[in-house]
Amino acid sequence: MVVGFAIVAAWEIVTAAGVVAFRKPIYNALSLVANMLGLAVLFLMLNAQFLFAAQVIVYAGAVMVLFVFIIALMNPESDVALPRRGSEWIYGAVFGVIFAALLVSLLFNRGLTGRPGTLTPEAIAAVGNVQTVGIALYTKFLFPVEVTSLLLLIAAVGAVYLAMRRIR
């Protein structure tokens, strides 16, 4: 298990670096896809099978396909003049340090307690993984789920409105 985690973690770091390191936009996007697939595997190793499937279907399979679509069609390489090589390192370093400090402070203050909750692997296996997520979403978290769905509906209607206005 530890070996498996080490391999996936290394994969995650390499692909995450690929997202910013490649000079060809399509490779950046594909690195992100690879990164998301690795994340899905991490979910799988944590016994979260449903999250694995949802992560692959929604992020790797739907959201990123659209990104790759747009990059392949627009060919941003020819439109966007990339800044001189090297200047981005300064911004990268500044924001990287800030973000790392945030992460470290979170880890030390809230911390991972290591105390198991009520949903132990055995309790989940008794009901079923998909079933556990479903029950949680539609009983305890019903209100947030409905509010989120309304938000997405507004976004969809807005997107259709914007697209139709341009046609007229």
């Binding site: 697939l37 449903f50 396909v65």
Partner: peptide, 22 residues
């Protein structure tokens, strides 16, 4: 014989789109 069953099929085919597009 996994609990996510058919979701596995949907997940794998959604990645298969990349093969054709790329």
């Amino acid at each position: 014989n996994v609990n996510i069953g058919i979701l596995w099929y949907l997940a794998v085919t959604s990645v298969g789109v990349y093969g054709i597009f790329l």
